[in-house]
């Protein structure tokens, strides 16, 4: 199939970015990233600089891909990362616009690569259970309700890709932060530090300059792991409870 790509090119964070147009021949069984590989091979053969994009596992779990395809993070398919998106979703003659994730807290590094270290900072503010190696009791000492474990997993499925922030018109990181908080809150081991965790992580989230949630819900729609927006409501509740009832 013959495609026209409209790709965002930006030398670095300080430089102005602009779109660059490329014609490319693709096959339907290619993944979206393989299509970009073909583009890059072509660019390199012309001795020019290829399009920088982040990718690693290419099986939808590492959370590296960070591009917005025709206005949607990870493209049009629900529950699919860019690397799992295949070209059969497009037809010959299509023009595809590819941009980086956009949010002030995700500054562009080059082309389609953005800096998501603000997510690490949020986790470092409390996204853990304070247990040293060797201190643990037997794995079966504390039974965990089966549904709770399953709910915890649903939130823990987050791959930290940042599509939620990219999709949010407010550039908010509430879905990411709430998924982590709820993952740990659902488990007895995580409940102990819950109140301080909620406060510290939200404080850090605000400090990183993310926007304020207005419950648009785009985050949940675009999340490649389909983590629902319920997480945000649960975090709001946790936060209000911890602010008003705890020291």
């Amino acid at each position: 199939m013959q495609l026209t790509l409209k790709v965002w090119r930006q030398k670095n964070n300080k430089a102005e970015g602009k779109f660059e147009f490329h014609k490319i021949q693709a096959e339907e069984h290619m993944s979206f990233l393989e299509m970009l590989d073909v583009l890059n091979e072509k660019i390199v053969s012309e001795k020019k600089e290829p399009v920088a994009f982040e990718h690693d596992c290419r099986e939808g779990i590492c959370g590296s891909c960070s591009m917005v395809i025709n206005g949607r993070p990870h493209g049009p398919q629900a529950g699919t990362t860019t690397c799992q998106l295949h070209m059969r979703a497009y037809k010959s003659g299509d023009t595809i616009t590819i941009e980086p994730f956009r949010a002030t807290s995700f500054p562009v590094i080059k082309d389609l690569v953005v800096d998501r270290s603000s997510f690490d900072n949020i986790i470092q503010a409390g996204g853990y259970i304070s247990v040293n190696t060797g201190q643990a009791v037997d794995g079966n000492a504390i039974p965990v309700n089966r549904d709770d474990a399953s709910d915890a997993f649903d939130s823990a499925a987050c791959i930290g890709c940042g599509a939620c922030v990219a999709a949010c018109p407010n550039g908010s990181a509430m879905l990411f932060t709430s998924a982590k908080i709820n993952h740990l809150e659902k488990l007895p081991q995580g409940k102990i530090e819950h109140n301080t965790r909620v406060k510290n992580m939200i404080k850090q989230m605000d400090k990183e300059g993310f926007g304020k949630c207005s419950n648009v819900g785009a985050c949940g729609v675009e999340c490649p792991k389909e983590i629902p927006m319920d997480n945000i409501a649960a975090m709001n509740r946790s936060y209000l409870t911890s602010v008003f009832t705890k020291e």
Partner: peptide
Amino acid sequence: AKGSKYAVNT
């Protein structure tokens, strides 16, 4: 916080 907008709005 959003910074710049996307070229394609959906």
